[in-house]
Design a protein around this nucleic acid. Structure first.
Length: 506
DNA sequence: ATTAGGG
DNA sequence: CCCTAAT
């Protein structure tokens, strides 16, 4: 099998002994691999502690979904581990003098090859569902392309251990199985981002270990496997998680995780998200035209992020897809975009400064609020969303004037007349703003009438003059549809007259 | 291309 | 602000 040969060669390059006679046997191959891992992982640490902790690292993922199968598997593991713990020095695997740098070396191995090893297993007898319930055990949806493969490999290995453990239970390499079992799983438990930080990994371990104790104890005990409980608790507990977490295990594991995780090949087979496409095209377009209307870096990004959170689920999902993959695709977009944004940012600032500078006395009242809304930090997201341009009082006034003149609904006209200079205010923006003004005035008035104190502050104080005008206009021009007169005075009394009036004017 | 509305 | 459905 190609996979085998490839795999073998990979290890051969590492100077690892490889038994030709076993080459054709997948199990044998795996055993060999497992041995390596064990040697690597166990290096410099106490066998028992390691075994305990490694196994425990799995627990948090399915605290609430432990099924009998899993328990059985665990039991098997512990048995194996126990036996091995007693024989570790005589373990045949000692023969495989593994270079301590295996962890780093393995990084060179192609993901495909290692995967190839698993594939046969997958195909043969592994129900990928040995421990998956859809939502998954790693906290990440299977729908995430990035994770799926890991999950599969994990399951594959899981299945392997599960289905073959009995066969191997008396084999000399049983202990290796346990060890290997763990590293393969890690990827499923971590967010790629987390993995990058070794400390985080260590933290996870600690957490996992601690939480596992409970589960392990109750589960195993109830299962009539008390002896294991003892084993783990006594021997495993002695092991200081922190100690090995940070020193021995975290490094190698982390590196391996990265390895498994990193595989660049066909990680993302999904077609680009709509947003992704949009952004790309938008970016290009923007670049070529040097559009002036773009967003600023920092604030904009944040806004977008916020927005994303509030957006429809579908969109959110797509977004996450973009955010997660720390792969090239993402960077490719962002880098160029970022530079672009900066450019635009400067331009915009200039114009903005002007506007901000000329505010009226009342402006001071409004501004605080605006500032408060202003975003703070930026995220990687290449946000396409327009920068949240705070409406200055002057702008609001202009808008009101426009509405007074043209009436509600003629946004494009208002835009032409009053906002021709401000590129960033589109008719739609005006419309939205008006809507907000109505709402604001209504709320403000209401709060004033009732318990004025209340969280009135949350609603940025609107200059009274503005507020009044809005109210008046609101009465005059009931906002389409919801002519629910916010003003406490004359509810929905004026409809036809004013309406026609305005309409005719134009 | 504009608007109205929902998110 | 963004997005979409209606005009």
């Amino acid at each position: 099998m190609n996979q085998n040969s490839a795999y073998r060669s990979g290890f051969a390059s590492l100077g690892v002994w490889f038994d030709e006679s076993e080459t054709r046997d997948d199990h044998a191959s795996i055993s060999g691999v497992l041995c390596f891992d064990e040697k690597r992982v166990l290096k410099g640490m106490e066998r028992k502690g390691v075994l305990y902790n490694i196994d425990s690292s799995i627990a948090p993922k399915r605290e609430h979904e432990i099924n009998q199968e899993v328990l059985d598997l665990k039991r098997s593991h512990f048995e194996a581990g126990k036996i091995q713990a007693q024989n570790d020095l005589s373990t045949p695997c000692e023969d495989y003098l593994l270079d301590i740098e295996f962890a780093e070396s393995i990084t060179n191995l192609d993901y495909g090859s290692s995967r190839g090893l698993l594939d046969p297993i997958l195909e043969s007898h592994i129900p990928l569902s040995s421990c998956d319930d859809g939502t998954d055990t790693c906290g990440m949806p299977y729908s995430s392309g990035l994770v799926v493969q890991e999950a599969q490999s994990h399951n594959a290995m899981f299945g392997l251990t599960n289905s073959e453990l009995h066969d191997l239970s008396h084999d000399k390499c049983e202990s290796q199985l346990l060890v290997e079992y763990n590293p393969v799983k890690f990827p499923t438990a971590f967010n790629p981002e987390d993995i990058s930080n070794v400390d985080d990994v260590a933290g996870f371990f600690a957490e996992a270990a601690s939480s596992e104790k409970m589960i392990e104890h109750s589960a195993l005990t109830s299962n009539g496997v008390s002896f294991m409980s003892n084993t783990t608790k006594n021997e495993g507990k002695d092991m200081n998680c922190e100690r090995f977490d940070k020193s021995a295990i975290s490094r190698p594991v982390a590196s391996q995780v990265m390895n498994i995780d990193a595989p660049p090949t066909q990680k993302r087979l999904r077609k680009p998200t709509r947003r992704y496409i949009d952004e790309s095209s938008d970016l290009n377009a923007t670049r070529s035209r040097k559009r002036t209307e773009v967003s600023t870096s920092a604030s904009e990004s944040k806004n977008k992020l916020l927005r994303v959170k509030c957006q429809k689920k579908s969109r959110l999902e797509s977004m996450e897809m973009e955010l997660f993959p720390k792969e090239s695709s993402c960077k490719a977009i962002q880098v160029p975009f970022a530079s672009l944004v900066n450019e635009e940012c400067d331009k915009r600032h200039a114009s903005n400064a002007i506007q901000v500078t000329k505010p009226h006395k009342e402006a001071t009242v409004v501004k605080p609020k605006d500032v408060a809304i202003a975003p703070k930090n930026l995220d990687q997201d290449g946000a396409r969303r327009k920068h949240h341009r705070l409406w200055t009082v002057s702008e609001v006034r202009k808008l009101i004037d426009g509405v007074a003149q043209y009436g509600v609904g003629r946004w494009s006209h208002i835009k032409k007349l009053y906002f021709s200079s401000s590129v960033h205010r589109t008719p739609v923006d005006l419309k939205d703003k008006w809507r907000n003004l109505l709402k604001a005035s209504y709320l403000q008035k209401q709060s004033k009438t009732t318990e004025k104190g209340k969280h009135n502050l949350s609603w940025r104080p609107l200059p009274n003059s503005v507020l009044h005008r809005v109210s008046e206009l609101a009465n005059m021009h009931p906002y389409p549809r919801n002519r629910r007169c916010k003003s406490s005075r004359s509810p929905c009394a004026s409809s036809s007259p004013e309406h026609t009036n305005r309409t005719n004017i134009q």
